[in-house]
Write a protein that binds this DNA or RNA. Structure first.
Length: 413
RNA sequence: GUGGGCGUAGCUCAAUGGCAGAGCACUGGACUGUGGCUCCAGUUGUUGCGGGUUCGAUCCCCGUCGUCCACCCCA
């Protein structure tokens, strides 16, 4: 094979693409009910935007970004995620001057240079939503409820909502220190990765999967024990609101977000049917990012859904639900073919998917093709029909057939 | 970046250190102008690529590329 798509980058074809279309249309519908409006964001941004927001020492920035110089020597990066561009957009267009809150959603490809595996690609698609300028936990609960309703509308079952709070710039340092003290004297017993995490991001030790590390961290206090008053009240109110909606969720004190900008609320939607990459959606609050991007101090919260992972979880739609032609027009002879083209154009103008035969094939093979492409009706036109002005029709699902004047054909549908 | 599994027809997969196969699909016919079911016939290959061992390699070895899964990390 001469050419193939790049590693970790995939074509999305029918019938798979019908699942994607359904996800997109249902998401749009649900989001609109909650006042989220679509924004279309660029795929490339200046590199600076991602370094500043995601964090200089994160894996994404250190080794996963598609970064290149443009012709003027500016450093350009293909977006690895959507929140930073959304915040850049919010600040650039002074959207904080519009009535708050401003709620947006977007979708499109993201890019990370990683080794592909189940549910992980180098170009992957996300649907994201961001809500700006509400500090109250009621919007955290609203967003989580919106996600739940979206997944429910898609018929997704066996998913779990995991919730945590990772504190803010006031209380998180205290917690980090507590962890450093707790792990410090037994550091050499931890796995090499955890010893590295100890220096870089000690919170990550909490979700190490190595058995030995799991044992060693028994007795470590959960982050929620170290929250400052503001963060603790926020978290408690969020849980209260979720309870009042009868939202099922589980607390996961080991849920740590990988991006630097997150504060307070962190959540993930996970499934056991996804392999190791089990998060189908994840999000959290980022109360400082707008200000860091040069806007006024503005709290915000958002999430992103992994499209490939979501599509993986949704059962393939049965073939009968795929779009299919309304009619295949079989024609015998040049004059009939010309007439079949005219009829096709007429019915297409009325909104139907019509296929016809492009030339010279036996009636049998034309009908076989009509069947194979799952056309609902076959029309047959030959010399007799040209003379009489009537076509032969056959419903390929029921086997019913008959004859009808050409102008009346539409009454069959 | 690290580790492991797998690369044979369009697809799913067999096979043996000695002529590369099956099912599905596709095309035509049985059935001059009526699909699906059945039957018959036909088409399809640089066995991923490069090197090595061997009289001989699809098979064994090395490398490489691709792919899948896992680690790291993440949607």
């Amino acid at each position: 094979m001469k050419y193939s798509a790049l590693k970790g980058i995939e074509d999305i074809l029918p019938p798979e693409v019908y699942i994607w279309q359904e996800i997109e249309s249902v998401a749009k519908d649900i989001f609109h009910r909650y006042g989220f409006q679509e924004i279309r964001l660029p795929i490339i941004e200046s590199t600076e935007i991602f370094i500043r927001s995601i964090g200089e020492t994160t894996d994404i920035v250190e080794k996963e970004m598609y970064t290149f110089p443009d012709k003027a020597g500016r450093s350009i990066t293909m977006r690895p995620e959507g929140t930073a561009p959304a915040v850049r957009c919010y600040v650039e267009h002074h959207l904080y001057n519009l009535p708050s809150p401003q709620k947006f959603f977007y979708s499109g490809p993201m890019f990370r240079y990683e080794r592909p595996q189940k549910g992980r690609f180098r170009q992957f698609y996300q649907i994201g939503a961001e809500a700006f300028a509400v500090s109250q936990p009621s919007i955290d609960a609203e967003i989580i409820a919106m996600l739940k309703n979206l997944f429910e509308a898609l018929g997704l079952k066996e998913i779990n909502f995991e919730i945590n709070s990772i504190g803010c710039e006031k209380c998180r340092p205290d917690y980090k220190n507590a962890l450093l003290n707790f792990f410090g004297d037994k550091l050499t017993d931890f796995c090499p990765d955890c010893q590295r995490r100890y220096r870089g991001n000690p919170l990550r030790i909490l979700d190490c999967k190595v058995d030995r590390c799991t044992e060693l961290r028994q007795g470590a206090h959960p982050v929620t024990g170290y929250l400052c008053n503001e963060c603790r009240e926020h978290f408690e109110e969020l849980l209260f609101r979720l309870n009042s909606l009868n939202m099922p969720y589980s607390l996961n004190p080991n849920l740590i977000r990988g991006l630097d900008y997150y504060t307070k609320t962190a959540f993930e939607v996970t499934s056991e049917h996804l392999g190791a990459q089990k998060a189908v959606a994840a999000g959290g609050r980022y109360d400082n990012l707008v200000e860091e991007f040069g806007g006024p101090a503005t709290p915000a919260i958002g999430f992103a859904i992994g499209m490939e992972r979501l599509a993986l979880l949704l059962k393939e739609k049965p073939a009968e639900e795929h779009p299919a032609p309304k009619v295949f027009i079989a024609a015998l002879g040049r004059e009939a073919e010309i007439e079949s083209f005219r009829i096709a154009e007429d019915l297409r103008a009325k909104g139907f998917w019509i296929e016809f035969n492009y030339g010279g094939a036996s009636l049998k093979s034309q009908l076989r093709k009509a069947d194979r492409i799952s056309a609902e009706f076959a029309f047959i036109i030959g010399d007799n029909e040209l003379k009489s002005g009537k076509i032969q029709w056959k419903n390929l699902k029921t086997g019913q057939h008959g004859e009808i004047p050409i102008p009346d054909a539409i009454s069959l549908f």
